[in-house]
Amino acid sequence: MNKPLNKMAVQATINGEPTAFLCSPGQVLADVLRDELELIGTKIGCNTGDCGACSVLVNDRLVCACLVLAAEVEGQAVQTIEGIAEGGVLHPVQQKLLEHAGLQCGICTPGVVVAAKALIEHNPNPTEEQARYWLAGNLCRCTGYDKIIRAVLDAAQQMRQEAAV
């Protein structure tokens, strides 16, 4: 009754590095990132796309890694929380979350960082309402979202100023 191990070889660019991994056909990207590639910053809160803790970018598109089959990313570019700080320099969203105390337990934080980065790339000047709706898929039970939203808007403003210089 045990089926033989049925692994697929997948090649993708993960956080800028060409990466090859083996996965089973039904394995989701979140599990491969965490268990095979030791990228444990992608968190699993629900496994059904309802909490956003596993948010990653696939070809710059914001998705839940629990709802992507690992085999689907063949030839694609995946960016996880581990790839957001470039050369050890924090992304403004990361820096502003720290400064605004926009995290308490921190389990949602990697997903929030990835989603907020995608928001600002998509819309460099989001309103409060736009930020709230964009991040509605990132559940946070600790903060009431207040300091998260302030941090994201502040990061966007800083990035606009830097872009203008």
């Binding site: 598109r61 998705v63 839940c64 709802l67 990132n138």
Partner: peptide, 9 residues
């Protein structure tokens, strides 16, 4: 439909 993440897919 769902979240930004869901709409991505």
């Amino acid at each position: 439909i769902g979240s930004t993440q869901i709409q991505g897919r």
